[in-house]
Design a binder for these strands. Structure first.
Lengths: 151, 151
DNA sequence: AAGCGATGTAAAAATAAAAATTACAATGAG
DNA sequence: CTCATTGTAATTTTTATTTTTACATCGCTT
């Protein structure tokens, strides 16, 4: 799992729960198999989503369950739960500017307001994407594939 | 320079050119001193911006110069020049999903359209931010500081 | 209440990405 | 021709992240 695919893995897990949670018990072993990611990492990820109130994970018996409808879970909710400092990765600020140079000593404060704007627009677009959108895309995809096979 | 501060360093360099390029020759050594980043990295960064047509860098004699007005250089221009794959860092997709699991084998295609939307919104907000905005913020900041000192 | 299949989580090890450094050929003005 | 400088490749170092291992804990089930 390079360059933070955390959010993708999290969505993958949520889709497993949403689409197969009724029939199968979604354990870390099952999700690990499906995602290709280590069970311990899956457990850590699931645990973060549990703490954020998105899912419930049963100890002892095992299994994960949605705590909200798929319309009530946005990508922003997931992203925040699972990779809270992720956004800083696109726009980090260099840590050792000169404190004698007029630009250097102000650069952080000069960049900050604009970076905040960018982050806000990411937040906004993530808030507009819901787990239900992925569910629909997935189901639509299967439907089409089935049709194709019939022709 | 951790977690891709490339864009920040690039903006820092452009501000040096814009604000002090008339009086000083902006060399990699000078920019390295001001940013706290290695001269070789500065040269690489400047070279990328040169290739993107944002600045001109004189070989032999040295020095960097803007090729467009500060209004005509957006953060998106800079970001694209300097860190073209940067956006993938916020939303990477896990590389080894199961190809037998119904979710696993479709996950990449399920995620992609939404991720594209997010990237487009980042692009849009970066396109709305110009180098001139940073110049203004910088000058305004100095002006206020001078005023404060007078009281 | 013992067994069992799970989770939660810490710690260690491995891996990969990114950055810093070094080095030097190429450049072009004077 | 000299000199300060760029362009760039190669190497080393550093740091972040992931993977793995391990095990205490949990709570059904029998």
């Amino acid at each position: 799992m390079r360059i933070s695919a955390k959010c993708s893995v999290a969505i993958h897990c949520l889709l497993l729960i949403s689409e197969y949670g009724g029939r199968l018990k979604i354990t870390s072993a099952l999700a690990a198999e499906s995602t290709g990611v280590n069970p311990a990492e899956i457990r850590a990820l699931m645990n973060l989503m549990k703490k954020a109130g998105l899912i419930d994970v049963k100890r002892g018996v095992g299994g994960a369950y949605l705590m909200r409808s798929t319309e009530e879970i946005t990508v922003w909710d997931i992203y925040q739960a699972v990779d809270p400092y992720g956004l800083e990765k696109i726009m980090g600020i260099h840590p050792n500017p000169s404190d004698t140079c007029p630009i250097g000593k102000r650069i952080e404060r000069v960049l900050e307001p604009s970076y905040t704007k960018i982050e806000e627009s990411v937040m906004l677009s993530m808030q507009q994407l819901r787990l239900s959108d992925f569910v629909e895309t997935f189901r639509e995809m299967r439907r089409k594939e089935r049709e194709e096979r019939r022709t």
